[in-house]
Design a protein around this nucleic acid. Structure first.
Lengths: 215, 215
DNA sequence: GACTGTGAATAAGTTCACAGCT
DNA sequence: AGCTGTGAACTTATTCACAGTC
């Protein structure tokens, strides 16, 4: 359906635009220019126009963008117009915290199943979400049409878990285990490696260097 | 001391090299070539050589890099040869999980103080780390020479907390609150915005698109 | 007059290709 | 012969600049 390849950098900015649009909607702002969005997001107005133009001409020249229409478009583009269901594997500290965080905050992407090997955890619920044994991954994921996986296992089992998830039909993985998952290409992988964040920030904490405002 | 500006992309790869070097050291490997490092890290060998060359000529032509020497160099470059002390602000679910994660895993960067406004939490300890009231930020940070801040507060207070940290002399901030912190330039900021990660991954979970192996 | 959409220019980062040590 | 260090080519992403529309 789409012609050209959209840069991941663009995809990563879309939820930021969406967040601002939601705030604007709450404040009953009907129309917004790319220049105003630039002020509110910290990106340049050209960048915003270019990002949005990848998906169509949503704006009106001389006027700007309709807040509610653009919000709908972004939700549709990101696939957030339907509920996105996720499964989390690894019910440790981080997994539990992420589940609580997700359930309480989020309506768009919803953790609907947790998997763990520890018999003491299986059968219980975390913030209302049931913990299943890892053997059930394939069944539960298929039954519930889960499309996203979150890995919060130790590094040693992350690769194996990723394979299970991919085989079960998962399309996107958010990996918190401190390993770089082998790039399959049937699945989008995003690694959040906290150790790496700590260690690379140490460079700036220690040195005289300044800079990076990064996500 | 250093001539040119080192790309943040390079800084982010250094801890990955370091991780591999530690594994090699454990396996008693003494020398490694950039080609071998490439296999083990997933980056190209030219990239690795170029990254390392920013900081000096650590390798030996025709031979490779000394594992232990390169490890020492990287630790020094990243400032991990000295203990890096960090303070965490916001003792909620995520803050607590991060503290546990950090204390149990990490020797390089160490959370030594937690701040929270909730009187029920102040005075207690989390995984052995004491919780202080937010008013004490400036004193505690200066007394303990804390150089890194971790923000796990709600979005509404993140900006204010960041200012307090910067005024107290913090050099690097890891921000988990769902707001983009205003770029001061006296401090390095890295944002980990979980909502953004979920929402941008939804694009790949829903669509027919494949791809990004990203950190 | 104001603001979008976009080709052209620039900047940043990565890969190529090879000269230079050991 | 083998592997590093690095200028040059290339690729990708961002910024500039302006024509086009309301």
């Amino acid at each position: 359906m789409r012609r050209i390849r959209i840069p991941d950098a663009t995809i990563r900015r879309l939820p930021i635009y969406l967040r601002v649009l939601r705030e604007l909607e709450d404040d009953d702002v009907a129309v917004i220019s790319s220049a105003d969005l630039a002020v509110r997001t910290g990106f340049s107005s050209e960048q915003i126009r270019k990002d949005l133009a990848y998906f169509g001409a949503f704006g009106v020249r001389g006027v700007g963008y309709s807040v509610s229409q653009l919000e709908d478009q972004l939700r549709r583009i990101l696939g957030l117009d339907k509920e996105v269901r996720a499964a989390l594997v690894g019910a440790g500290n981080l997994g539990t915290a992420l589940t609580r965080y997700n359930v309480n905050r989020h309506k768009d992407v919803k953790i609907v199943a947790i998997f763990d090997n520890d018999p003491a955890k299986v059968g219980k619920t975390i913030e209302g979400v049931r913990v299943y044994p890892v053997e059930d991954i394939a069944d539960i994921i298929r039954e519930n049409e889960i499309k996203m996986g979150i890995i919060t296992t130790p590094a040693s089992s992350a690769e194996k878990v990723a394979e299970l998830l991919v085989r079960a039909g998962i399309r996107a993985i958010l990996n918190f285990a401190p390993v770089k998952l082998g790039s399959t290409d049937a699945v989008a992988v995003r690694n959040i490696d906290l150790t790496l964040e700590f260690e690379s920030l140490a460079y700036y904490a220690a040195g005289e260097e300044k800079r990076p405002e990064t996500s």
